[in-house]
Design a protein around this nucleic acid. Structure first.
Length: 649
RNA sequence: GGGUCCGUGGUCUAGCCAGGAUUAAGACGCUGGCCUGCGGAGCCGGAGGUCCGGGGUUCAAAUCCCCGCGGACCCGCCA
């Protein structure tokens, strides 16, 4: 017999026998649903029920007395997975698993289902779009942003394994000032071939160009303040200027040639600012030359992103350009439609969306999980000059997404919570409450660096590439120390997946709602609670299988009587339940946590008990099968996080 | 000022949504042991805790509710 979810078999067996006994003893009282929980210690069995505390209130008897009666009445014949049922403590009913049956069921199920074990399918498969990363194409992906692709990709893998059809989308924010600034600088340089990685090159152009422009602007302002003799204003501006001057010095040291060229060229322009503004306007208007220019710089940057993400094993299915929604008039159409609702108003000539009124009129606060007294601030849709804002354009983008998918998950930092809410309400105002319900803002907290403020305009950031490189370098040192006999090529291959695994794990392991403080220690720690630790455990299991070089042909699972073996078997059996929780509640870190716990148990077992040399051979075979099953589950868990499960390391 | 999220040994984290048992679970760091055995990126042991504070609900609270405190973020014609 094979089960896709062995622990659930045991669980439902326990629920059935308990329910039957309850019906017999207390036919008039319904206690459903019977939620069974995991006892704190194995001496209390593998599942327990605290139903008697509740029941005692109605019967007037002591909970323990009730529990004893029920335990007595429970009939486990016909449920081979249940060994026994006992009343204990103040009134618990504890269920003990029959390991002889359960070990066989679990180990054989894992080995039979193999690469699909744990990946329980959803009853209602959906088409789901996951938008993630969507980093503005103005500089390399930095470590503060890197949590996003790791979470997004893990979610995509988990939901796909859950049976959904998943599309990974990247939203390219090419409209607006930042891209125009780069385009301006890039044009001044004569559209050069990038030196080095294209996103780094673009990042340098962006920082240098905006720095030079900022200094020019501040110089003018300082002069004006001086003329008008506003001393307070003057000293404030002077401080800002000093700050930017030091940024300029820094950039000049790092990129001397680029800096000199740009300074030279930009200085020739009387009004760089108005040139940038022209670029923004012409781009939105869809002027062919500017279109080509801006798409060219964006594409250069995206090329760099694809390279970086590719190293981390992350690919996207669709790259969606924000500008497309302007050019095809979707934005205009949506605005026209919104204007016909009672939920927009003008302040002067700017157009605002009244999110609060929408929520009240349509009674949406409960639907959207908001407190009744939560007051939503209005959203500006159109500026004085007639141009739109980011969130405005997000509205047609999401209408488009919902034509392609039934559910949309946006992996976006929690600082955008309000904007995402306003977006949902705008969809509601347009008559799509159903969309708003199926739009999930997967919010995650920021990554902070102690004592360091990253700034893209100042060109100050630690890139994901640097972090990956650092981790690979550290992994190389480690593998050279531990496995000097390997060829240099092997060492390089190993340090690659170890280093990348370490970075991914460090960013996905923490509950997304909590902030992560980035330290090199965190990423370079290859000991417990890290990808390398789990990978190492997998490699060890692999190593045993290699060394044994036989199939466990005659296993006797009743010989697996050690607590350490039972612990692993239970953990393996619970993987499907952990997976379902991770998939349905969008908790990728639960998978990371699980993999680490399983690796822990396996390593304890590994040092305590022999496998290959165990006697009798039926025990050796049973343990060998257990090792094989463990290795499969470790691999399946790592796969969900996009982390390689290696043969050796 | 208003709102959202977070607060668990020195440091980092799980548990909180769906409240349960003696002794709140791990990791780092500190500390004492273990390599002629299937890989020491490992294993075994020790010290270290007002689960931010105070109320409330309950037979039962780290978990739910309220009031505080601390931190992050948002409240933009930025994204």
């Amino acid at each position: 017999m094979v089960s896709a979810n062995p622990f659930a078999e045991f669980r439902s067996g326990c629920e059935t026998v308990l329910e039957d006994a309850l019906k017999g003893l207390h036919p008039q009282i319904s206690m459903l649903p019977l939620l069974l929980e995991t006892p704190p210690s194995p001496e209390f069995g593998e599942l327990s029920s605290s139903v008697c505390f509740e029941l005692a209130k109605q019967t007037g008897k002591k909970p323990l007395e009730t529990a004893e009666q029920i335990a007595e009445a429970i009939n486990v014949s016909g449920f081979p997975l249940i060994q026994s049922v006992k009343a204990a403590g103040e009134g618990y009913i504890n269920f003990y698993v029959n390991f002889e049956e359960f070990s066989r069921l679990t180990i054989e199920s894992v080995r039979a289902i193999d690469t699909e074990y744990g990946y329980v399918k959803n009853d209602e498969p959906r088409k789901i779009i996951i938008e993630h990363t969507s980093v503005n194409p103005i500089h390399p992906i930095h470590i503060g942003q890197a949590r996003n692709p790791m979470l997004g990709d893990a979610l995509a893998r988990i939901l796909k394994a859950h049976g959904h059809t998943v599309f990974r989308h990247y939203y390219i924010d090419d409209v607006g000032r930042q891209s125009a600034v780069i385009a301006y600088g890039y044009e001044k340089l004569g559209r050069p071939e990038p030196e080095g990685k294209p996103d780094s090159f673009i990042g340098a152009i962006y920082a240098i160009t905006s720095c030079i422009m900022e200094i020019q602007r501040l110089k003018k302002e300082v002069r004006r303040a001086k003329e008008l003799d506003i001393s307070e204003e003057f000293s404030k501006l002077q401080r800002e200027l000093d700050d930017w001057t030091s940024v300029a010095a820094d950039l000049n040291t790092r990129f001397p040639k680029l800096f000199a060229r740009l300074l030279d060229e930009i200085s020739k322009d009387e009004e760089p600012e108005s040139q940038v503004n022209d670029l923004i306007r012409s781009y939105e208007a869809g002027e062919e030359k500017v279109k080509q220019l801006i798409r060219e710089v964006c594409n250069l940057c995206l090329q760099g992103f694809k390279e970086t993400l590719g190293r981390a094993g992350i690919t996207l299915d669709s790259w969606d350009w924000e500008s497309d929604f302007i050019w095809n008039s979707d934005v205009t159409r949506v605005l026209d439609k919104l204007k016909k609702t009672p939920y927009v108003f003008y302040v002067g000539n700017i157009l605002e969306f009244d999110a609060e009124k929408t929520a009240q009129d349509l009674n949406l606060k409960e639907t959207l999980d908001l407190r009744e007294d939560y007051e939503l601030s209005p959203l500006t849709l159109v500026r004085t000059d007639g141009t739109t804002l980011y969130t405005t354009r997000d509205i047609p983008y999401h209408l488009w997404k919902f034509q392609k998918a039934e559910k949309v998950i946006n992996v976006i930092g929690m600082e955008q919570t309000l904007a995402q809410l306003q977006l949902k309400l705008a969809l509601c105002a347009l008559g799509h409450v159903d969309y708003a319900k199926k739009l999930v803002h997967f919010a995650y907290n920021l990554v902070n660096l102690p004592g360091y403020t990253m700034s893209s305009r100042r060109g100050r950031y630690i890139t994901l590439d640097e972090v990956i490189d650092g981790a690979i370098k550290r992994a190389y040192e480690e593998v050279s120390k531990r496995s000097p006999h390997l060829s240099d090529e092997e060492k390089h291959t190993i340090s690659e997946f170890v280093g990348i695994g370490a970075v991914k794990y460090a960013l996905v392991e923490v509950d997304p709602t909590k902030p992560v403080v980035f330290t090199w220690d965190r990423v370079l720690d290859f000991e417990k609670n890290s990808a390398p630790y789990i990978q190492y455990s997998h490699a060890r299991a692999r190593s045993i299988m290699r060394k044994a070089s036989r199939e466990p042909e005659n296993p006797d699972y009743s010989l697996l009587t050690n607590r350490l073996e039972h612990d692993i078997i239970l953990t393996l059996a619970r993987f499907p339940e952990v997976f379902v929780d991770a998939a349905e509640n969008l908790r990728p870190h639960a998978i990371a946590d699980y993999a680490n716990a399983l690796a822990d148990k396996f390593n304890t077992f590994y040092t305590a008990l022999p496998v290959i040399k165990a006697k009798p051979p039926e025990l050796s075979d049973a343990r060998l099968a257990l090792v094989d099953a463990t290795r499969m589950v470790l691999r399946n868990a790592l796969n969900l996080l996009g982390i390689e499960a290696p043969e050796r390391m």
